[in-house]
């Protein structure tokens, strides 16, 4: 099997909120078209790290990073990088479904519209394709002009995924995408992740060990701002090398 290309890489990455050292010397490389799960107890830095990958932390006052994050070998914190362009490449799905208070259709085409695409046929086609990819099309095709807020939580989250896919990113960051959902919706999201990894590089933060085990190819365990262990999910869950990893995944703390 040929080794996949490294889509995302962090090199000697440190991050701070003011004086608080949130990420300590992180080195990690994530392969393209794989699912990487970030696990660890609350406050371990996994979400902070996820959010540095599309620079969502930029607007938090006092937040700063040292070291490099490379997307396809290019430093995303370089001065000439436009953060809005970066985020078109690195899409994000949040913990709580956050559709805009607009119609379902308007939500999906939002990203295209802000890029200046106005042609109706292009927008409609992209909307259908993205909704199909997010396994939502059949449920909403007759009510695209209805408010997105009228959908159930699980549908809203899939709509957010469709919205993120519509601008065709190559990376999809998911910050505990199923933690606010019921088990059936969670299962749908997980199925979806499994489908999507054929085309996208996915990074998912999760609190749920079983979920990490089910959906991811690689798992990274964070603890107190450090990357403790990073390995193939199978190896990590069967024979963790580090004692803290073992204690965490077997539920002894966290």
């Amino acid at each position: 099997m040929s080794k996949k290309h490294n889509k995302l890489e962090a090199k000697n990455l440190n991050a701070y909120y003011g004086d608080f050292h949130a990420l300590k010397n992180i080195n990690i490389a994530m392969e393209e078209k794989n699912v990487t799960a970030f696990i660890g107890p609350s406050g371990c830095g996994k979400s902070t790290f996820l959010r540095t990958l599309n620079r969502m932390n930029d607007y938090i006052e006092g937040f700063r990073v040292e070291g490099d994050i490379l997307l396809d070998g290019r430093d995303i914190y370089a001065k000439d990088v436009r953060v809005d362009e970066l985020r078109k490449e690195v899409g994000m799905v949040f913990q709580k479904p956050n559709p805009f208070p607009k119609s379902i259709y308007e939500n999906v085409v939002y990203g295209l519209k802000i890029q200046g695409i106005k042609k109706k046929s292009v927008l409609e086609e992209a909307a259908e394709q993205s909704l199909r990819q997010a396994a939502l099309w059949e449920e909403v095709k007759d009510k695209l002009d209805k408010s997105a807020l009228a959908l159930s939580g699980g549908q809203q989250q899939r709509l957010c995924i469709a919205r993120a896919l519509a601008i065709s990113p190559s990376v999809l960051l998911m910050d505990e995408p199923a933690s606010a959902l019921d088990p059936i919706s969670t299962a749908k999201i997980e199925e979806l992740i499994y489908e999507l990894k054929n085309d996208y590089t996915i990074v998912i933060v999760t609190h749920n060990m079983q979920q990490a085990g089910r959906v991811s190819d690689y798992t990274a365990f964070f603890y107190m701002g450090e990357l403790v262990e990073y390995n193939k999910t199978k190896s990590m869950f069967t024979s963790p090398k580090n004692e803290r990893t073992q204690n965490y995944i077997t539920g002894r703390f966290g």
Binding site: R87, I114, R163
Partner: peptide, 18 residues
């Protein structure tokens, strides 16, 4: 306005003005 809406917009590649 909930912070999550702003994050959604930024996450889609919106500029501050957008």
């Amino acid at each position: 306005v909930p912070r999550s809406l702003r994050e959604a917009a930024y996450g889609m590649g919106s500029t501050r003005l957008q």
